[in-house]
Design a binder for these strands. Structure first.
Lengths: 157, 157
DNA sequence: TGAATTTAGTGGCATATACCATTATATTGG
DNA sequence: CCAATATAATGGTATATGCCACTAAATTCA
């Protein structure tokens, strides 16, 4: 039974989006009882690391490898629902810092429990070692250095 | 210089989305002159494989690991712009087959040239061998068998 | 054969995410 | 200090993508 030919076998971009769709569904199904999507959980978890001071949107976007305006839009449902708040920066009037509200922190903690289940399933299905290796490779692809190397690579001549 | 802590170091779902955003930008920049986005190029290339008969939306969605309705939505800009057409199936009145128009095929061919450059850059920056390995791993994650294994890993209670 | 069920698609709604233009603040150079 | 420039964020617009409800057509079964 031959697998049908697919672009993803040749195109890394297609392959990664396809896998992201699959993983998105699998993780979402597990953490859905918390009322959060996987993307929201990721974002809130990253914000949580900043603690009470919060983190300015610009560096947050960079850490997430996300466009700044996309981050702003993605935050809207979260601020609307009172899970995240944007606070002014003391020093720089342009800056807004994202911070979890008490409700948001509780929600994130709740989702964290479910996430552990999802991640454990992934490790079980994929192998814990390959899982860590995969994250390391994905981390490389996501790095500014990789982007630089990609852009600098010589086009076909 | 310590890298800041990030969720993506622990969560494979976060890691893959983050890498997908990065790759999306990099590939998009390269194939933009064709007027297509990376996602559109992927989809059209997959449709192209079906040739003149086209391919019903359901199996196309399955191949792309995409929700059927999401596929329908994604196809809209392409049908609107006359790059893809949906034709009736001879045997089954429920089925619509997606097929590239002549214009769409030409556009896809044009984007293909640019894509080769993008993929070559990826291979150069990441290593051709690791690149192929990565696609293979992503293919595993995208497979129905992996989804089954993930869901079976632990019962929800 | 006709009713019940399954299957393929469509449309509405919501989030995710990008690019562009604009605004509000800083920072810098003269 | 002030004008020019740079930076952070916001809002508009468009595509990407998922869930749910609904329709149409095929299949199943009594």
């Amino acid at each position: 039974m031959n697998e049908p030919e697919g672009v993803w076998q040749h195109c890394t971009n297609s392959a990664i989006r396809r896998a992201a769709r699959q993983l998105g569904q699998l993780y979402d199904d597990v953490i859905a009882p918390s009322g959060l999507k996987g993307t929201q959980f990721s974002l809130m978890s990253q914000i949580a690391l900043a603690g009470r001071d919060g983190i300015p949107l610009k560096p947050l976007a960079e850490a997430m490898v996300m466009d700044l305006s996309a981050l702003g839009h993605t935050l809207k449902p979260l601020t609307r629902d009172g899970l995240v708040e944007l606070i002014a920066d003391e020093k720089d009037g342009r800056v807004r810092r994202a911070r979890l509200t008490a409700t948001g922190a509780a929600r994130q903690a709740e989702a964290l429990t479910l996430w552990r289940d999802a991640q454990a399933r992934f490790d079980a299905a994929f192998g814990a070692e390959r899982s860590a290796e995969m994250r390391a490779l994905l981390g490389l692809v996501s790095s500014p250095d990789f982007a630089k190397a990609f852009r600098a690579a010589q086009p076909i001549r």
